[in-house]
């Protein structure tokens, strides 16, 4: 059209173009789409906000009251005389197991997959196995723990407690989070620029020397992030502990942090939360909320540490 317009009307043509380019385009569908995205985002954030607000307001009374007793006391039949001492101890030991067993094992496996493994049937089988293990429901790991650590190895994990001990729980959860550690550590190793490896090989370093001196230090923040997230996951898991036989009612003992007590019966924070959730009445709900706040503080602190580490790491690299 415009191309065939005689030059006498070119002023009018210019006017048309200008108005076409400057007019505010109405795009109701695009607007609506963007608004619905905002709604999705806000709803997600709001859910998180409501959840945290809900447990904090409900649990505040219990936490603000005699926090000392609540944090150190034993499990009881009434909300007033129930404390988290034994549960915190169990959760603490589970964390120790994960740190001591899963971190080195998972990082070593990741090093093999990223730095040593060549293409081959066995190695691809290993990576398929790891990816699938990451998707196995946690309750199935509980069945593994029940069969192997509680029943088959009960005489080792807890001769006086039918194997239903924090040792069994720690081993089970260490295995549960192993694929998470491997996958995140492998990602961190993959992000190491190849030039660093070549530089090492170029001056005659062995594979292990290159990994130890250059690859691991470079990947360390990323690996740490992944391991901390895995730790948080282990501390919050409850389903496998039910199968492994965490105590839900009364518990004698289970308070000592001495290694001897590892082969006694145990409980853990997520288990206590699960059990108390089912008890009727406002008081139990308040105690449960308070226990949740304690668990969330532990888990968030770990996640927060991971996020801060990663941000610092990304900033340092650019």
């Amino acid at each position: 059209m415009a191309l065939s317009t005689p030059s006498s009307s070119s002023v009018r043509a210019a006017e048309t173009v200008r108005s076409g380019l400057t007019a505010r385009q109405s795009d109701p569908f695009g607007r609506a789409f963007q608004v619905s995205l905002w709604v999705a985002v806000l709803a997600t954030v709001a859910i998180l906000g409501v959840l945290i607000f809900d447990v904090v307001t409900h649990g505040w009374g219990v936490l603000a009251g005699e926090t000392g007793d609540f944090l150190t006391g034993r499990l009881g039949s009434q909300p007033e005389n129930s404390g988290l001492g034994q549960a915190i101890r169990g959760t603490f030991y589970i964390g120790v197991f994960v740190v001591v067993l899963t971190f080195p094992l998972g990082i070593a496996a990741a090093i093999y997959l990223e730095e040593y493994a060549q293409h081959g049937r066995l190695n691809s089988l290993i990576s398929v196995a790891i990816r699938n293990l990451a998707g196995v429901p946690s309750v199935v790991y509980g069945i593994l723990g029940l069969t192997i650590f509680v029943k088959a190895l009960g005489s080792v994990t807890g001769p006086d407690a039918n194997g239903r001990t924090v040792v069994s729980a720690g081993l089970t959860l260490s295995i549960l989070v192993l694929p998470i550690v491997i996958i995140t550590a492998a990602e961190a190793l993959r992000a190491v620029p190849n030039g660093i490896r070549e530089g090492g090989f170029g001056v005659g370093a062995t594979r292990w020397e290159v990994v130890r001196s250059h690859v691991l230090p470079y990947a360390a923040p990323g690996i740490l992030t992944g391991t901390v997230i895995a730790l948080a996951r282990a501390l919050g898991e409850a389903a496998p502990l039910i199968l492994v036989g965490a105590t839900t009612g009364f518990l004698t003992g289970g308070e000592s942090f001495l290694p001897d007590s590892l082969r006694e019966r145990f409980t853990a924070l997520p288990i206590v939360i699960s059990t108390w959730s089912g008890r009727p009445g406002e008081d139990w709900a308040a105690s449960t909320s308070a226990a949740i706040v304690v668990l969330l503080v532990i888990v968030f602190a770990a996640n927060l540490a991971a996020i801060v580490l990663r941000n610092r790491f990304e900033r340092g690299r650019r």
Partner: peptide
């Protein structure tokens, strides 16, 4: 014995 210098400078960090 046979060292190598690469296309992109690759000092260790």
């Amino acid at each position: 014995r046979i060292g190598m210098v690469f296309q992109k400078p690759n000092p260790f960090p």
